[in-house]
């Protein structure tokens, strides 16, 4: 097992005819992802390396049975593309696009919460279930199948931590990047909950960063609901208040959202927090080692 994407995934990519969309879409296909369709309005009937292009997501779903959508369109069109995928009945939308206006995402988020479509992202690296399916831009060759579920707000930091874990012999059930924007489609709590219920996952690693209160709320949730061991990491101990550190969501306002506060909140609820990626791997090895 794995979460969110796997052997059942049938992928439609909005923006497959674009430079980035085709590069990563085809990369996903080479990995083994069942890429069934692309959508570009006005280009219906064409194909990209044999993958059929449709004018609408509705057509793509009707023709191919796509159940997962990846969004690779520019920020000003991305909210519309997410809504289109949801309206066409896709179960999971993974939005890679960075720079979507917050008010667009507020409306999209509120609407999706009233239906059944799950959104990952935006501004995220996607979801990888090693050996099964890759939807997004995560460089899959660093990761192998295993029992660590990894969830993160950041892309390259995920690769760094995943790689540090891999060097200790850990593989992954799934790797989920929820994105660095203030309004993310899925929260840490929801992904941690999926890992808790996934039989393949034995250990959960959660990489947060400064800004917001997600990590604090997740700490409460873990204490009350999660049996599996969770190891935490928080980036941004040295970040000054009032400055956005690259991600739109990564900003300390007043005394809220600091890395110190987040690490303490997690530790207070029994989640051990590594201060560096190396320490995260050390703790993971200790926990899993102790179980054996």
């Amino acid at each position: 097992m794995s979460i969110l994407v796997g052997t059942e995934t049938k992928l439609v990519v909005s923006g497959l005819t674009g430079r980035e969309g085709s590069f990563h879409g085809m990369n996903n296909r080479r990995y083994g992802t069942d890429l069934v369709a692309g959508v570009t309005p006005g280009k219906g009937g064409q194909d990209v390396e044999g993958v059929p292009i449709f004018d609408t997501v509705h057509d793509a779903v009707a023709e191919t049975g796509a159940n997962t959508s990846m969004i690779f369109v520019p920020p000003r069109f991305a909210a519309d593309a997410i809504l289109e995928a949801a309206d066409a009945g896709v179960e999971l939308v993974v939005c890679i696009t960075e720079g979507i206006p917050v008010h667009d995402m507020l409306r999209v988020y509120t609407h999706l919460r009233r239906g059944t479509t799950r959104l990952i992202g935006p501004n995220c690296p996607g979801v990888l279930s090693p050996g099964k399916s890759n939807v997004g831009i995560i460089p899959a060759h660093f990761f192998s199948e295993g029992n660590v579920g990894l969830v993160s707000r950041s892309g390259t930091l995920t690769y760094q931590i995943g790689n540090t874990l891999a060097q200790r012999g850990f593989g992954n059930s799934s790797i989920v990047g929820i994105g660095g924007d203030p309004i993310a489609g899925s929260s840490f709590i929801e992904i941690v909950d999926l890992f808790e219920r996934d039989p393949e996952t034995e250990l959960i690693v959660m990489c947060g960063e400064i800004g917001g209160e997600e990590e604090e709320r997740t700490a409460e949730y873990i204490e009350a609901n999660v049996e599996k061991p969770v190891v935490g990491y928080i980036a941004g101990f040295t970040a000054p208040p009032g400055k956005t550190m690259g991600h739109a969501g990564a900003i300390i306002s007043g005394s809220k959202g600091t890395a110190q506060a987040k690490a303490e909140a997690l530790e207070a609820k029994g989640v051990r927090v590594g201060r560096t990626p190396t320490q995260v791997a050390d703790i993971a090895a200790e926990i899993v080692g102790a179980k054996v």
């Binding site: 993160s152 707000r153 950041s154 892309g155 390259t156 930091l157 995920t158 690769y159 760094q160 660095g180 990489c207 960063e209 400064i210 980036a235 941004g236 101990f237 040295t238 970040a239 550190m245 690259g246 991600h247 990564a250 890395a259 201060r275 560096t276 990626p277």
Partner: peptide, 21 residues
């Protein structure tokens, strides 16, 4: 660095090693 999270993490690791970014 490349990627906001990794750069934040790099600042932290440098600070832990006794440096000031």
């Amino acid at each position: 660095g490349n990627g906001a999270g990794l750069v934040m993490s790099t600042l932290d690791v440098v600070a832990q090693a006794g440096g000031r970014p």
